[in-house]
Amino acid sequence: MTGLRERKKRETRLALSRATIGLIVERGWDEVAVEDIAAAANVSERTFRNYFSSKAEAVAASHLERALVVADELRTRPATEPLWPAVVDAARKSLSGAPDSPRDEGHMERVKLVLAHPSLHAELLRADDIAKDELAAAIADRVGLDAERDLFPQLAASVATAAIATAMRHWMVNDPNGSVIEALERAFTEIGRGLPVPEGES
């Protein structure tokens, strides 16, 4: 169970991350300084730097927090619930608390530009690794396996995090005015079916 102090730190990280993303989407990556982010979040520059070493790390923190919520939520699910429905519900909860998706196409294009920034790539990979380890630990606890020695928890965590990321990317690119939850559920449905090749494709 996450302690109060750790929860407060995560809340501060998320607030700083969202402030960073909002400013960069509005102004552009190179037009936002740490002092701007600190002012928007009503904290000192020192506080920002206590949490993040760069704007890229701050942007990636929202992605990481969303993934950590999946592990947190999975640990709260009833022990009698089958694993994959529990994972899907945990993933659904992690996305339901996100800010409302923007409806302006120009805004979405700016979001995509932010996510494509070269300096963000390594930070997102690092966030993915941390998130997969946390989710693997939660899965291992649930099914009575060792998160490091047994293959299944790591494999299941990798599949789940890939499904969530793919669903979000598909939603942003193809249907940002629609529901990200629907894209998520479609992704897990296809995984549950064993990923059969759709008719007409090879």
Rank of each mutant, 00 (worst) to 15 (best):
P196G: 12
E201M: 15
L135M: 02
V197Q: 04
G194Y: 08
I181T: 14
A140G: 00
A162G: 09
E148P: 02
W171R: 02
K132S: 12
E148G: 06
M172F: 05
E134C: 15
T161W: 10
F152Q: 02
T166M: 10
G144Q: 00
G192F: 03
T166N: 02
T189D: 15
L135P: 06
G194N: 09
I181V: 07
A165P: 00
A157K: 07
A138C: 03
E185G: 03
D133E: 15
I139N: 01
E201I: 15
N177M: 11
P153I: 00
G200T: 05
V173E: 11
T189G: 10
L195W: 13
R142F: 00
T166F: 04
V173M: 14
I139D: 05
E185T: 07
A147V: 12
E182W: 00
D175K: 01
N174W: 06
E190D: 08
V159M: 14
A131H: 04
A136H: 01
R169G: 09
P196K: 14
G144L: 09
R193T: 06
L184D: 06
I164A: 04
V143P: 04
A157H: 03
L151T: 05
V143E: 06
A131E: 08
D175N: 09
R169L: 11
A157N: 08
Q154L: 02
R149H: 07
A137W: 04
D150E: 11
L184N: 09
R142N: 04
S179Y: 02
M168S: 09
K132F: 04
Q154C: 00
S179V: 05
E190L: 10
V197T: 15
A136Q: 01
A136T: 05
V197W: 12
F152M: 01
A183K: 07
L184K: 14
A187S: 14
A138P: 04
A167F: 04
M168D: 06
A140L: 03
P176G: 12
W171M: 03
G192M: 11
D175Q: 12
A157P: 07
H170F: 11
F188K: 04
A147K: 06
A140R: 01
M168L: 10
D141Q: 10
L145V: 05
A147W: 00
R186T: 13
R149M: 10
A162D: 13
R169T: 12
E134K: 15
